[in-house]
Nucleic acid binder design. Structure first.
Lengths: 213, 213
DNA sequence: ACGGGAGCATACTCATCAGTATCGTGGCTC
DNA sequence: GAGCCACGATACTGATGAGTATGCTCCCGT
């Protein structure tokens, strides 16, 4: 149906774009949007600007694509869990565990996404990319909504502490997302370690929200 | 050459510097380090570059000063609470409550500090400011240490969950610090609202760390 | 076996800042 | 009441980096 709904410049550039997005995520993660030069991304790719501008019209568009990719993976993996079996507490726990794991597995992309639409952008580029911007905010809201609904259910079922859901969701995400600030992937020792961190964080977050017995 | 330890250029510029730091914090909060121009800070001051470069040698130095001011306030206010009365749980709760409150009261500075030494800096400016950089990292570590010790005590006393302290501190801070990501000061309604938010977050964090009855 | 275009590289342009150099001006001391 | 200096404004310089213009080279279909 779409001749060209995203601003795809060439017909078959999807895997080329993916490769660019991956490299961009790494550099954006390291330096942030403003301090990242397209040349630096190109260098990480072992290429030059030309390659990137062939697929993307601007740095902002590339940055947006990183965020979109990150959010889409989260939504794709977490939504089924929200619909899965078990009561609200069990489902929320599964979601949190998966969420934390994905953050670590996909650190570059996810870190960029978590940092979010740093203000630096909104002011500078808002006008030109208003539509894309809105769609990303939409994605983020949708994602939070998935959690919010499960939490809502849990509160109504008397499983969770009886507080404003919005205000409960925040520290819940905080406990998990904060890992993008401190987590540094170690060479070696990765496979089972990620799981342990994810479990610890999830445990903390769940205790925070569960109504005391 | 020059004997003065901080790079204070003029003799009595302390209040002038304070005013500059305050303005800088607002702009840095809004746009981040890289995307903030000194001219923008000057404009917020209702002045020009000249004023700023009269007191600061570089943008980095100014940025550092914001971080230092933020960390110093935290340490100054929280440390007494760590030494105060009560068991580890009571002290930790008081600390968390105060911490969250300060974040909201001093949002610009604290947000900049929480975002931390964004990587964008480390690469770019590390060499020249290695000493300052180290002292800021030191401040941050000291601050975390204040919490870590109380948490340690609580674990030994059997009050807190029995997990690696380092891994418990992280989500604890996460639940609190995350508010710098979502909290937007509302005009009106501020005085008691801040207190409620702080209490909710603190409650969450404490439940996360307390050993279930 | 030859156009033509997708997929890049190279080589520009032009704007934005960080930092500097220089110059006014008011207040202070003697 | 003259000189001095803290303070700050104005007017430069130089580097960096986003985006563009253009050229090269395969690969593809015909």
């Amino acid at each position: 149906m779409d001749a060209d709904s995203s601003s795809l410049k060439t017909v078959n550039g999807n895997e080329a774009r993916t490769e660019i997005v991956r490299a961009a995520a790494e550099v954006f993660m390291e330096f942030g949007f403003a301090a990242t030069s397209i040349d630096a991304v190109a260098e990480r790719l072992g290429a030059t600007k030309g390659r990137i501008y062939h697929y993307y019209d601007s740095k902002a568009e590339l940055y947006f694509d990183v965020q979109i990719a990150a959010m889409e993976r989260l939504i794709r993996e977490i939504e089924p869990l929200a619909r899965g079996g078990g009561n609200a507490a069990e489902r929320l726990e599964a979601m949190a565990l998966r969420h934390a794991t994905i953050l670590m597995e996909d650190l570059p992309m996810q870190k960029v996404a978590v940092r979010g639409l740093e203000r630096e952008l909104l002011g500078a580029v808002a006008a030109r990319h208003a539509k894309t911007l809105r769609s990303i905010i939409r994605l983020r809201d949708d994602y939070e909504q998935i959690f919010a609904e499960v939490i809502d259910t849990g509160i109504r079922d008397g499983l969770f502490v009886d507080l404003p859901p919005r205000l409960t969701t925040k520290p819940f995400f905080g406990a998990l997302n904060w890992l993008t600030v401190w987590y540094v992937p170690r060479r070696l020792q990765k496979p089972e370690d990620i799981a342990e961190i994810a479990r610890t964080l999830t445990g903390f977050a769940m205790r925070g929200i569960l109504k005391g017995a």
